[in-house]
Amino acid sequence: MRIAFALLLGFAGCAQQAQPAEQPAAQAPPTQGVRVVRTYPHDPGAFTQGLFWLEGKLYESTGLVGQSTIREVNLEDGRVLRSTDIPAGLFGEGIVNWGDEVLSITWQDNVGFRWDRRTFRQTGQWNYGHEGWGLTQDGRRIIMSDGSPILRFLDPRTMQEVGRIEVTSAGQPVARLNELEYVKGEILANVWQTAFIARIDPATGEVKGWIDLRPLAAQNGGGTGEDNVLNGIAYDPDRDRLFVTGKNWPRLYEIDLLPPAAR
């Protein structure tokens, strides 16, 4: 379902108008902007697919066949400290930490991998029957997106599905959910080919709000094409820092969320 964010809200408005008078109309979630706290260099050759922060280190995955990697990156200067290639011929997607491992998935190859976090040595793999886009975790379960409105919850040990939610905004499904990050009880999700992040309730799938990053996308080539869109969210819980970047962006940003815009 390739609909732009503005169209999505438009459809939601039409749905509200079509509801019988006795049924309350679904209210569009609030939108909030951001304040840039600090800007860091980012490898403009990195087709960013996944991002996370753990124990003072930034981890990133990149995509495209023949260019897919898992990396440890120095935050201050964007330098790649160490890297390993995804197996040849595969298109890498999201990553997440679990224990001493990094878990990674592939786009249309239906295979995921386990890597030793300290050595980047591959230690295992598993298969799934759908596309792979983004990964995060809530401390109990792995959370996986596949480009549809569905988020799957997986058992970290077996990587078998143990639950799922459909993500909706104002009653309408939200497709193209991409890179994910679990932050303060919410799932943050990039929506592919937009400059918006959805704040999702993991219990209901309802979008609680939208984060508008269009000003940052404009600084990095517009962020509206397939090759340079917003994609990459990482959270540092120890210092309460939120980082964002995009595919082939030369910058990575630490941001603060502003209060939602007044209605």
Score class of each variant (00 low, 15 high):
Thr168Cys: 08
Leu177Asn: 08
Pro202Met: 10
Thr119Arg: 11
Ala203Cys: 03
Thr136Tyr: 12
Arg176Cys: 08
Ile142His: 02
Ser145Leu: 08
Gly171Trp: 10
His130Leu: 13
Leu180Asn: 10
Glu179His: 07
Gly124Trp: 10
Asp201Trp: 01
Arg164Gly: 03
Gly129Trp: 10
Leu180Asp: 05
Glu179Pro: 03
Phe196Leu: 14
Arg140Glu: 15
Ile187Gln: 11
Pro156Tyr: 03
Gly185Ser: 03
Thr123Tyr: 05
Thr136Trp: 11
Gly171Leu: 08
Gln125Val: 01
Ala189Gly: 11
Arg118Ile: 00
Asp201Pro: 00
Gly171Met: 04
Arg118Gln: 14
Glu181Gln: 11
Arg117Gln: 12
Arg176Met: 15
Arg199Glu: 04
Asp155Ile: 02
Val167Ile: 06
Trp133Leu: 02
Glu131Ser: 12
Gln160Val: 05
Ala195His: 14
Phe153His: 07
Lys184Ala: 07
Arg164Lys: 14
Trp192His: 15
Ser148Lys: 11
Trp192Cys: 07
His130Val: 14
Arg140Met: 13
Trp126Ala: 04
Tyr128His: 15
Glu186Ser: 13
Val191Arg: 14
Glu131Arg: 12
Thr158Gly: 00
Gly129His: 15
Gln160Thr: 10
Arg118Asn: 13
Glu186Trp: 02
Thr168Gln: 12
Gly132Met: 06
Thr119Gly: 04
Trp133Lys: 03
Ala175His: 15
Phe196Glu: 11
Tyr128Asn: 12
Gly129Gln: 15
Glu161Pro: 00
Ile143His: 07
Pro202Phe: 04
Glu186Arg: 15
Leu177Pro: 06
Glu161Lys: 05
Glu181Asp: 09
Gly147Thr: 07
Ala203Gln: 14
Asp155Tyr: 02
Arg121Phe: 02
Pro156Thr: 04
Val162Asp: 04
Ala189Met: 12
Ala175Cys: 12
Thr194His: 05
Arg141Ala: 10
Thr194Gln: 06
Asp201Met: 01
Asp116Gly: 00
Trp192Leu: 11
Ala170Thr: 09
Asp116Ala: 09
Ile142Trp: 04
Asn178Ala: 06
Ala175Gln: 10
Gln172Gly: 00
Arg141Lys: 14
Gln193Leu: 15
Ile150Glu: 12
Thr168Trp: 06
His130Met: 14
Tyr182Met: 11
Asn178Lys: 07
Trp192Gln: 09
Ala203Ile: 00
Ile143Trp: 08
Gly163Tyr: 06
Ile165Asn: 03
Arg118Ala: 12
Thr158Val: 01
Ala195Met: 10
Ser169Asn: 01
Tyr128Lys: 11
Phe196Val: 10
Ala198Ser: 10
Gly163Glu: 09
Thr119Glu: 11
Asp155Thr: 03
Asp146Cys: 07
Glu161Ala: 11
Asp116Val: 02
Ser148His: 13
Leu135Ile: 04
Ser169Ile: 00
Gln172Leu: 15
Ala170Met: 08
Asn127Tyr: 15
Ala170Cys: 13
Ala189Lys: 08
Gly139Thr: 13
Gly129Tyr: 10
Tyr182Cys: 09
Glu179Tyr: 07
Gly163Leu: 04
Thr194Glu: 11
Ala195Pro: 07
Ala170Lys: 07
Gly129Ala: 15
Arg157Ile: 06
Asp116Phe: 02
Thr168Pro: 01
Arg199Ser: 01
Gln172Ile: 15
Thr119Ser: 14
Arg157Lys: 11
